[in-house]
């Protein structure tokens, strides 16, 4: 049910854009207004989310550690697993962001007859996740050729490496294949494992289908139903130089579908789980140094408590205390 709702939501979005351009000639809406609105929403939304996270105090050091803490000099400490300073935190975060280190440790738990509990390695999620994210990044960087006048060398190099196999014409990009396979695997995994399907929500399926939709429309218009790429770049360049103008040539409705689904992704991004792009850097269990034995961390929401000391108490009641025969410190 949740799968179908998400699937049809993406399908309807795609059809709206396709029909909007094909039948109603809404090129300006889908090519200029919506992309701008989506991009502004994306920027503002992500900044808002970061500020919101930044305003939440994290009073305690709660890094997850799995190594020896820094202690006496003759005990070897684990700098990556249990970072004690900024450098260790940065190195650990880099490994986490670039290579999903914590996911690499993913385990599968199995209860068999006996009863016997067994743990085993489970690296497929890590592999597919890594393949998906890296492909997506490379595809994103590759697309910069549509947004730059003189395409700089690094971008053309990425593109050349990606089409290294020289299959067909236009050349096949490896990342296109890898991304489609990885997203498909991630989807099959989600519906195939009963426990995982049970905890999956619409906002797990929707981004999957949305990304799949973007990838499929992209693949279709590169390899199968080609659009006018020069026109696409002219539109992109006009958007990026803030002088929006539709090109004279017809780019093709598939392009606008691709762009609209992408706009939906951008606008949806800050309000969904996709915003882990920013959130990963703000994970307290990863971005903190385990230095609570070396440094004192004061709870930021400790407010100044009004303390009434004994001396003040005695000042208030000295005469009465004397009268009752109680001893006082100051006469």
């Amino acid at each position: 049910m949740k799968v179908l709702v998400s699937f049809f939501a993406v399908l309807v979005l795609a059809l709206v854009a396709y029909a909007g351009v094909e039948a109603a000639n809404l090129q300006y809406l889908f090519g200029v207004i919506i992309p701008y609105a989506a991009f502004v929403t994306f920027l503002a939304g992500v900044v808002f989310r970061i500020l919101k996270w930044g305003s939440s105090p994290v009073p305690f050091r709660i890094p997850t550690t799995c190594g020896q803490q820094k202690t006496l000099p003759w005990i070897k400490s684990s700098k990556l697993e249990n970072p004690s300073g900024l450098l260790g935190v940065i190195a650990r975060m880099a490994l986490e962001v670039l290579f999903f280190r914590s996911l690499f440790r993913n385990l599968r738990t199995q209860l068999s007859d006996g009863p016997r509990l067994a743990y085993g390695e489970a690296k497929w999620l890590w592999l597919a996740g890594l393949a998906f994210h890296w492909s997506f990044l490379i595809i994103l960087l590759r697309h910069l050729r549509f947004f730059m006048e003189k395409v700089p060398l690094p971008i053309t190099m990425i593109e050349a490496l990606d089409s290294f196999l020289q299959l067909g014409a236009p050349l096949l990009y490896m990342t296109d294949v890898v991304l489609l396979l990885a997203v498909t695997y991630l989807f099959i995994r989600r519906v195939g494992i009963p426990q995982l399907r049970y905890i999956s929500l619409i906002n797990d399926y929707f981004p999957l289908f949305l990304i799949l939709g973007i990838a499929v429309t992209g693949v279709l218009m590169r390899y199968f139903f080609k659009v006018d790429v020069v026109g696409a770049k002219m539109l992109a360049m006009s958007l990026i130089s803030l002088k929006p103008a539709l090109p004279e040539v017809q780019i093709g409705a598939l392009f606008y579908t691709h762009l609209f689904l992408l706009s939906v992704l951008f606008a949806y991004f800050p309000f969904s789980k996709l915003t882990h792009m920013a959130g990963v850097f703000l994970s307290p269990t990863r971005n903190m140094a385990n230095n609570s034995r070396a440094k004192r961390h004061v709870n930021p929401w400790n407010y100044p408590v009004h303390v009434h000391t004994y001396q003040e108490y005695e000042d208030d009641f000295r005469e009465k205390m004397k009268g009752a025969g109680l001893p006082v410190e100051k006469e």
Binding site: F42, L43, V46, L144, F147, M148, M237, I240, L242
Partner: peptide
């Protein structure tokens, strides 16, 4: 995020 905007 806005790199292409000021690059051009």
């Amino acid at each position: 995020a806005t790199f292409p905007f000021y690059y051009n």
